[in-house]
Design a protein around this nucleic acid. Structure first.
Lengths: 194, 194
DNA sequence: TAGGTAACCTAACGATAGTTAGGCAAATTT
DNA sequence: AAATTTGCCTAACTATCGTTAGGTTACCTA
């Protein structure tokens, strides 16, 4: 179809509103106002407010999972894998800042059992990164005493981008990815040159 | 005084509740139930729900700022400064997980003009870290092409600890600080040995 | 052209939120 | 002992929330 359906428009507006105000602080009446309709009219298209949150969170999770699986399937070495995984991650979250902010910040408001499902997906994603580190250790290019710790730290760094990234700012997503990759692999320290 | 005042008990319970549910999703009736009183009784001690959030956020901000100022005042070299700043940060946030979670997650719900005040304090704290990096560059021990970027990444890593730290877990705050310092300065990469 | 459906509307329901008013009893102060 | 304060109570107000019911209009399709 040429244009996005009304339902898709609602999801998009919801992501934008939830990002700005947070899920709990956003009202259906505000969302409706963004779309130029009455709150009750939303229910011709969606089942509930929870459906909006679920859809936004799980779409994002699915997209990220697909990306990490693809990276781990392709036969790069660990360094390439990590660089690509970071690059994909940044591309995905900067590509839809509204959804990714909701995905990172408001998933806690999901109702059970969807919340548990979500956490499982997130753990799966984390494990995708863990595999890369294991890979890197075997290839003797990465060291990480505590891999779980390392993965969480890496993900915290890449996810923090949602807090400050500006599409009109000076850094492109790929530049951010490069910076992050360098930081994650080398850190701050000046290495002895000789 | 021997025991904490009723008002302090309320702040503490509020931090615990807000951490679990988030500020917006927490109700005064729930908070009252935790303390074994009626919701209306809370208002003998506090002015409003907003006061709870404000107090929790600003106390944390003040404590962190005091710590970074102290570090920058003491005449350590940049490496010592960074290590101590991280150690202090981790000690403070692991020392009060309830408050620090609220501080990191719910500050967005602060009302203006307190919200702007809060952001100013946070920027001041960030600048404390920036100064350490500048220091380190002058001493030729740290490199950071984009210092703002580096500081945000460092803080995202240290703040993420609130998401998984468990006082009864296997890592002590000081061990976490050491891990983080190593990661932040060296990253993952295996350095060429010779 | 008749029938159906998609997309909206107004009105309102029931639940729940933060907060206030006013009072009572125990503890503290004078 | 009298007076005041502290800490709680019950009851209720007002606002706002997500959502439903039922109706109207415009468009598409058979």
């Amino acid at each position: 179809m040429e244009y996005s359906s009304r339902k898709e428009q609602i999801f998009k507006a919801a992501a934008k509103l939830f990002r700005k105000k947070g899920y709990e602080a956003s009202t259906m009446r505000e969302l409706a106002k963004m779309l130029g309709i009455e709150a009750a009219s939303l229910y011709s298209h969606i089942k509930s407010k929870d459906e909006l949150l679920e859809t936004i969170c799980f779409r994002m999770a699915d997209e990220l999972l697909r990306a990490i699986d693809e990276v781990n399937d392709l036969y790069f070495n660990a360094e390439e894998k990590l660089a690509t995984a970071i690059k994909n991650h940044i591309k995905i979250i900067t590509g839809d800042m509204d959804s990714s902010t909701v995905f990172l910040r408001d998933w806690r408001r999901l109702q059970e059992p969807r919340k548990s499902d979500f956490i499982k997906l997130r753990n799966k994603y984390e494990f995708g990164f863990t595999q890369i580190l294991i890979n890197g250790e075997n290839e003797n290019v990465f060291k990480a005493h505590d891999k779980k710790f390392a993965v969480l730290t890496i993900l915290s760094a890449v996810n923090w981008v949602t807090e400050w990234y500006n599409p009109n700012g000076s850094m492109t997503p790929d530049e951010i990815s490069e910076h992050l990759y360098k930081f994650i692999t080398s850190g701050l320290e000046v290495k002895p040159v000789m």
